[in-house]
Structures are given as structure tokens and as C-alpha cells.
Amino acid sequence: MDYKQFEELASKVRVDIIKSVFEAGSGHPGGSLSCADIMTALYFKEMNIDPENPLMEDRDRLVLSKGHACPAQYAALAERGYFPKEELKTLRKLGSRLQGHAKMGLVPGIEMSTGSLGQGFSVSVGMALANKLDNKEGRVYAILGDGELQEGIVWEAAMSASHYHLDNLCAVVDWNGLQIDGKNDDVMTVRPIEDKFRAFGFNVISINGHDFAEIFDAFDQARACKGQPTVIVASTHKGHGVSFMEDQAGWHGKAPNEEQAKQAVEELGGEW
């Protein structure tokens, strides 16, 4: 398969992350850029969705449990045709449909209001359980941050996903290694992530979260796995694609200034 088209789409998503966070003057570029490839893979290939019919009965659903990365989700949704790209400029502004942490019911495609860490994953367990109960085909995806794994509810949710054999649930951990106060390893160790999920009954797949071949392969494996939920532990770089943001905790929740934004867009091959 030719992955170039996905790489190009991901670059467009990244450009829109930079532009929208710059326009907003605040937001979370680092963790948005790290999950941009996963987001692109989900919205442009993996998920059974229809932007023309966003509430389609048997659709797949994505819950962005690391809700602060919503600039990535907004950019991907707009690129996919859920709402006009022009609207990305309104991010975080008064009256905007693009809240600083996504609120469902405003723009189509947002399946859950998130922002408070850990809760989105828990909600995705309920969605997957409902689909099982109703014999629906739809799968449920949840993107989690690595720092987010420090929340206790994540492990309560993991336990229940495994207990109810939710093989229609696929979590993706965006393992960029950094959180607000610094490295996960310094703040509060989350390692070993894979062993923890394995112990909680998950099918665990480890990949490079910036490699589309590995991302798509992991989603295929997840769909083929029966009787247990899957977690894809995706190694990523915070700020991926923008040289001066890469692997810098300082870019977790800070907007670039105009000069920085221009440089970032240029590096990503976009137009300012």
C-alpha cells in the first residue's frame, strides 16, 4: 500500500493544528502533533464513518480521552469534511463550536465531551458494551495520553473492558513520554505500559505511532482479535513534525508566536 497520501493528510492536519492553536493564542500543540498520524489513520481509513451522515447507525466512534489534543481531532474532522476548515480559526474563541476541550453536540463527529483525563476511556467502555448488547457492528476507539494512564479510572475502565470481553474496543496510547511537568519517568512512572495492560487482560500491540504501515497493521490485528479488548501502545514524539517542538515538554500547553508558527508551517510543507 502507498502510505504517501496518509502522510500528506497528516501533514495537513499538523499544519491546521499549528494554525488553529496560533490563532487561539493558547492550546496544546505538543500532544496534538504526537497523535496526528493515529488520528489521520482513524478518520481517513480505519473507521467506518460518513461525514454526510455523522450519526450513522452502525458507525465506528472515536473518543479522544486525552481531550486536550482536540486541535488534532478538529483538524482531522475538518479535513475529512465534517465542517468547514475555515472554522478552525475560531478555536477557543467565545461562541465557537470548537471549545478548548471538545464538547459533543456542537460540531458533528465529536462523540463525547472530554478534557478531564481518564473519563473518555471509561465512557468508551460503556459505548462498546452498548454495541455488544445491541449486536451492533460499530467499533469504539479511544485515544489516551501516557500521562493520562496515571489516572485511576483508566485502570478501572481497563478491568471492566476485559471483564466484559469488549473486543470491539480499541484503545491507543499516544506514548510520547512527556507530560506537563516533564518526563513521565520523572513525574510518575507509567512503565511498563504493555505489561500493565497485558495483566489487565488486553491484547497489546506495540508500534511506532508515526509509521502508517505499522498503524494500519495494528488496527487490522485489533479487529481480528476476539474475546478481549486491544490496546495499541504507540511510541510517538511530542511535537512531531516541528523541529523546535519535538520532544519538548514545554510545548505541551503553549501556543507558538507568529514567527514560530510560520516556521512550523513551513517545516510541515504548508502555506502560511
Binding site: G118, V123, L129, S160
Partner: peptide, 19 residues
């Protein structure tokens, strides 16, 4: 949901958002 009230109410939300 076992002795895990937070997740019970999170999952309750997901079930409710599924009708």
C-alpha cells in the same frame, strides 16, 4: 462494575450516549 464507582458512572455515560 465492581468496587469502581468512577468507571461505573463513566461507562453509564457511554451506554446512555448509545441510546
Amino acid at each position: 462494575f465492581g468496587i469502581a464507582e468512577q468507571n461505573m458512572y463513566g461507562a453509564a455515560t457511554g451506554l446512555a450516549l448509545s441510546g
